[in-house]
Computed example of a mutant assay.
Amino acid sequence: MKEWEIFAVKYADRNARTRADSFIFDDNHDAPHAMDYFIWVLRHGSRVIVVDTGYDDAEGTARGRPIRMSPTEALAPLNIDPKAVTDIIVTHLHYDHAGGLHLFPNAQIHLQAAEMQYATGPCMCHDTLRMPFTAGHVCEAIHRLYNGKLSFYRGDHVLEDGLSLHLIGGHSRGLQAVRVHTSAGWMVLASDASHFYENVLKSKPFPIVVDVEDMLSGYDTLKRLANRPELIIPGHDPLVRDLFEHGPADHITRLDRGPIKDIPL
């Protein structure tokens, strides 16, 4: 079975947050709690698959959440030309995961059908549920669909040898995690199925949620998919950059060899 390399590419962060922004019913709700924003890269020889696309400077300005570097700049140390990327796994269509789709014009998008149905359906009549989406990003995905550049999945799916997609839901209706075979064992890119280690390891739901039961059940799914808990990679936890080895640039972390430290929880 293939063993993939995995890189976490940080392009933005947000420090003006508290634990109330990360956990429901947290006793220490007003303590600071920073968040990092990542794109992930899977590589096996010359084969490259990008997981999520981040968002660009225009989106950052519109939301008051500036980025440190554009997704294209962030990927450059890995010698990745966004126009040459052929496949992108989109874990869900929230702005910070699908906001850079236009930067990868030639890529086939791999998405859960439930996510498109959710992002274009009656749930979007509610301001609270619509807030994490941006219409232009969803429309970009629809344009790809009509150009034959979008593949839909309905639940779990083996995409390639050593690489599978798993419908989780919870945070967004069609959110999917990515299970990857590595030299350290089966690793799971949780994306926003678990924003932080503390969400999954202590069963503490994240406040932006469409279905709390799905979110909590998703934590059990992540634990089942990974060979061990430390091989679950949360979607936004700054601890990732401390627990794993550095990559070819300061903002890039290599994941596939496993953590070099224990999770401090």
Rank of each mutant, 00 (worst) to 15 (best):
Q112R: 12
W4D: 08
A141K: 09
G45Y: 06
T72W: 06
E3L: 00
Y219H: 14
R65D: 13
K204S: 14
K10F: 04
K83Q: 13
L111C: 05
N15Y: 02
P234F: 01
R179E: 04
I142C: 15
N15C: 08
I39S: 00
M187V: 03
A135T: 15
T72V: 08
H44T: 04
P77G: 01
T61C: 14
A74I: 04
S217Q: 15
I109N: 13
K10H: 05
F206H: 05
P229E: 07
I24F: 12
I67D: 06
D81R: 05
V209D: 05
Q112E: 14
P259A: 00
L265Q: 03
E245Y: 02
I233E: 00
W40M: 01
E73P: 09
E73F: 11
L75P: 06
G99S: 14
R241D: 11
R257A: 11
P77F: 07
K223D: 02
H236R: 02
L103I: 06
K83P: 04
G45W: 00
H110V: 08
S22L: 06
D13C: 09
T61Q: 15
C125V: 11
I24G: 04
I252L: 08
L265T: 07
L265D: 02
E5N: 14
G148L: 00
T72K: 02
G235V: 07
L101D: 02
A12K: 08
A98D: 10
Y219W: 04
L175H: 07
K202S: 14
I6E: 09
T182E: 10
I233V: 13
L78W: 06
G218F: 00
Q108W: 10
L165Y: 03
G162N: 11
S217V: 08
I89F: 05
A12H: 05
M124G: 07
K83G: 11
I168W: 06
G258Q: 03
G162L: 10
P234A: 01
N147M: 11
H97W: 09
F23A: 12
T134C: 13
H33Y: 13
G100V: 01
V212A: 02
Y118I: 11
F196L: 02
I208N: 15
R68V: 14
R63G: 09
A107M: 03
H94N: 13
M187Y: 05
L231K: 01
R65I: 12
